[in-house]
Amino acid sequence: MKYYIRNIYKSYGSLRVLDNISIDFKKNKTTCILGPSGCGKTTLLNIIAGIIEKDAGEVLGFENEDISFVFQEDRLIEWKNVRDNMAFVLKKKMNKKEIEVTIDRFLSLVNLKEYKYYYPRNLSGGMRQRISILRAFAYPSNILIMDEPFKSLDISNKKIVLDFFKELRSLEKRTCILVTHDMDEALDLGDTIVILSDKPTRVKRVIENPYMESGVEEDKIKLRKEIEAELMG
């Protein structure tokens, strides 16, 4: 299955937000959409997810797919423990036994089984976001959409949650679309980096990230300079 968007346009009144956006999303790879704050990245995600209507263009491959989501906030239900928060999104997809097996499998996968019956109020911000990411991976889908999921975390928690996401991604293949304004996140996580301009938002450049394959720090530094130059220009 191919996932892509073609010639997406979106305006709010006279303000044009998205201007002819086309992106290909590679299967089981992470595409980072990098752009300045307020440029319309979340609007683009919402169009892909089908939450808001586009003015023109095509969204292909996503129509009949189940999609997992990770948001800026963890969006856990306060009166449900970790197990029940995960079960809440799985109920329509599985029977009771399968839900239990899935939850146990994912919690064990990342050594979080001891937190199964913890309530969100007893978890730190970083741990809450890890559960939110785990919930997204436990949900049976091919696509994972993430809207600045590390934005509200402090530096130490951010590193932990980033590593957590990388670990899960290596264990469970998904086509990930990650929106961020943080260049380091894009360099760390994106197989492909799509750089957006400020409003009216266009695709400035699409860069393949060699660092993801090679793991060589120099590749990352070189690419960072390229992206910086692109963003400055």
């Binding site: 997810a49 939450i51 997992s68 989501f69 948001f71 969006r75 809440f88 999104v89 109920k91 329509k92």
Partner: peptide, 18 residues
Amino acid sequence: VDKKIMEMAKLYKVDRVN
């Protein structure tokens, strides 16, 4: 009820009864 929780439920296609 937190609108963001409702949005999450909707995106994960949780049915109305639940």
